[in-house]
Design a protein around this nucleic acid. Structure first.
Lengths: 253, 253
DNA sequence: AGAATAGTGTCTATGAGACAGTATGAG
DNA sequence: CTCATACTGTCTCATAGACACTATTCT
């Protein structure tokens, strides 16, 4: 950061791209928009947009999230949690040729949200949907049983894969899995979040003992629900703990 | 990422800043350079520089590291490990007023290196040194026993703090602590790395049992050394494992 | 001999995983 | 009734942490 001659400094367009994840119907899904203009016209892409001249990167990400989904951000910047989705910076991508039009540096952000209706499209976007990440990333192990989906625009497959991996590892040692749940939820619903994100099956009894025994993770609200069927389950909301110690263990192999 | 009107797109200067960490004399130290020009003239800052027009962000970081320290990078991009320092992207900082001259977005990178001689200064840099992070960040707990050092330039105190926190957490579940060691090292030397980075004291016997019992972490070279005094210690080099499972546990409280 | 570091063995408390068994609702 | 889910209890195995003890070198 030392411009000997600031006239020699190159300038770049800067975008924020969003990896917005949710859990619907037992599957981890990402919000995708269909591009209405070249390049990559008609391809699916991550929502995002240019950072404005007077905007911080976190502000720009929150603005894009709000514009594209209608949900408000509730990341590490804002203090009160409960309403908005979790939003955090993921990584920055700056390959000189990642956008054929010009030099663009993209700051990817990760957003975790509860299940929501399919958001509206608008502007230069000709469609939006929640797509299972297993389809988008071809997670059938290359057996070729599924037809490969058309590739995503730009380097968005990599951004998406990095975001999914971040979410998978972060719910291990933090209470972020609750960001996928509605404000009040049951232990079983939280378990299904872990199962969907990790793609595994967890023992309901051990899971229950573990999460209810971690101080500050879950706060009982006193209410119960039978929306999953079976015996009425206690309702909880997210507690104040952010770091889980000891962590949830992701089963291996 | 959808410019309806690309003439309305703002452009930003983009820099890479480096948090270069090493362990010297039992303390975690960061490479700092003294600024020779305004703004923040005379203040200590992180090494860094502008990204060039045709350069990827990882390339730019590796180039700056090489220019400022003479060491080559050996991050996730290059495959063979052994010679260079570990280099990875940390986070991106884009507050509109973080540089009073112009709008600058900075991609911070984290580099971990073994103990090295104090690097050369050059260009617009009027000095360089390895500074203990406890001094730079005022880690005496606010007791005021140490005089506060002059603040760092720009928002570099935050970048440095974020880099240190990343290093501290990453040696828990990865084999990255070996990046602080010379190519061949003893279990005791590796333990002193953990102690310096975490600021704790570890039981030498449990540590030995733990690291030698983790497959792929350490490869015995067959040699021994007495450079630490006492009984000759086996020499190891870093094994192929990158993820430690189970992780090293950082003592709490 | 004494000091310093390296390395092994052993005990205990904690927690993860497996799984039996009970509780309470819907159809 | 059956079935589905919620929840509690118990057992076993692995491991972290505490710490006694031995090994090998230097001064």
């Amino acid at each position: 950061m030392s411009p000997s001659d600031s006239s020699a400094v190159s300038h770049f367009a800067v975008t924020v791209d969003l990896v917005v994840l949710t859990v619907r119907r037992h599957a981890l899904c990402a919000l995708m928009v269909r591009r209405g203009e070249p390049p990559f016209q008609g391809r699916w892409a991550l929502p995002g947009g240019f950072v404005r001249a007077d905007e911080d990167l976190a502000e720009a990400a929150a603005r894009e999230l709000s514009e594209k989904t209608g949900i408000s951000a509730d990341g590490p910047t804002t203090s009160a949690s409960g309403k908005g989705a979790h939003l955090e910076q993921l990584a920055t991508y700056g390959d000189p040729h990642r956008d054929p039009r010009m030099r663009v540096v993209s700051v990817a952000n990760l957003a975790l949200a509860p299940d929501l209706p399919t958001p509206r499209a608008g502007g230069d976007v000709h469609g939006a949907r929640w797509a299972p990440v297993s389809e988008l990333l071809g997670k059938d192990g290359g057996r070729g049983t599924e037809p490969s989906p058309p590739p995503l625009a730009f380097d968005h497959a990599k951004l998406l894969a990095d975001g999914v991996e971040r979410a998978r590892s972060k719910i291990e040692y933090s209470s972020l899995a609750t960001a996928f749940c509605p404000q009040e939820f049951t232990v079983g619903e939280l378990r299904r979040v872990y199962e969907a994100v990790w793609g595994v099956v967890l023992d309901p009894r051990n899971f229950h003992r573990k999460v209810t025994g971690t101080p500050g993770f879950l706060l009982p609200t006193g209410g119960t629900t039978t929306r999953q069927g079976g015996r009425p389950a206690q309702l909880f909301r997210a507690g104040g703990a952010t770091v889980l110690n000891p962590p949830m263990l992701r089963p291996e192999v």
